[in-house]
Design a protein around this nucleic acid. Structure first.
Lengths: 193, 193
DNA sequence: TTGTTTTGCTAACAACTGTTAGTATATGGC
DNA sequence: GCCATATACTAACAGTTGTTAGCAAAACAA
């Protein structure tokens, strides 16, 4: 028990920023608005973060770390490409479900990062894509997966995965596991009977 | 011949806005910056549009109309769900390819629309989703398509389609038709051998 | 020609932006 | 107790925001 008590101001700032950045976009959220929602004055935010960009950076970098960790853990549990893909999809959705606000900020608002964080972020993003694409490439070599354009397929799959937060916020409810299985089936087996 | 000559200032404003809104996000683009890129002064923009929001509204509504038209035309050419789906995917990608900047603005920046345009937009979006979902539902009834959660599948397919503009801007090049076929195959037949 | 509409300009507005300086109060270690 | 750190505050900054007023020149209609 006791999972939400004892939240520091800094944590509250981060959480509120995640919510507001997602709802209105980074550029459209002012420091005064953020502060008000937290229950403090704008300048007090600077006791916890160096700048507005610093808040965004922490959100994005934390999420990146989570996605990487979950990916690596998932990939290690399986050998065959199809099963690895399924595991990665499940892991990815797990992270999104556990961080509904920040996951969306991570995917949509990272463009507002300033250098050098922006460069670092792009590099990580590319690395993640490449790792993912590697599963497909390996699967094709072992003939477990059809010969497809792996770059296009990777883009498509990522986007489909990121659709999960739209779905999670919609009226229709499904468990994380059901969503992951449905999506994995769709991507692996297709729609056709 | 002669397809780009004789561009009115208003057209130039719209085109420039599409480019900037896509690159930096609606909220991060100022009227002065937009005007400078067009080659006029900021207040002169108001000779062509009533407000900043008015520009965004025109971009979004024009794209919505294009997607609807292309969708309806595509759906009319086929009977079977699988083939309809393929036709719709091809049509959708065609619209994205022909409007690479505005399509992305349409998908990402519509949140900044003000009422009543925002409400109208959401309604249209829902209508599009519902129409699309209708194809899947019909296909399932006729047993041409597997029993899936059509809402989740619709979300996933839309997202995958919107990945096309990322792909189009990446290094790897594919024709519109190849992209459409690759994606349709992926979604209909799946990745598994 | 005339009058009218369109399209551009400069100057300026009130509101808002992220941020800093300087200060007071509370908190925790010794 | 005392000192240091952390955290909050108010006041204010320089710059930017979307937008309006008022005016001039060009374009067009008669």
């Amino acid at each position: 028990m006791a999972t939400k008590v004892e939240q520091t101001t800094k944590e509250k700032v981060k959480q509120t920023a995640q919510k507001l950045f997602r709802e209105k976009g980074y550029a459209a959220v002012g420091m005064r608005e953020l502060a008000k929602e937290v229950g403090i004055q704008a300048p007090s935010l600077y006791n916890h973060y160096k700048s507005k960009d610093d808040i965004l950076r922490e959100i994005c970098m934390d999420m990146a770390a989570q996605f990487f960790t979950a990916f690596d853990a998932a990939i290690a549990t399986e050998q065959k490409a199809g099963r690895q893909l399924r595991a990665v999809i499940r892991a990815h959705i797990g992270v999104v479900a556990a961080n509904m606000d920040s996951a969306e900020v991570f995917f949509q608002e990272w463009i507002f990062l300033e250098q050098p964080a922006l460069g670092k972020f792009k590099k990580m993003r590319l690395e993640y894509e490449t790792k993912f694409r590697g599963i497909l490439d390996k699967g094709i070599r072992k003939k477990e997966i059809k010969k497809v354009n792996t770059k296009l397929a990777t883009f498509a799959i990522f986007s489909a995965l990121n659709a999960t937060y739209d779905f999670m916020r919609s009226t229709e409810k499904l468990s994380q596991e059901q969503m992951a299985d449905e999506l994995a089936d769709l991507l692996l087996k297709g729609l056709k009977t």
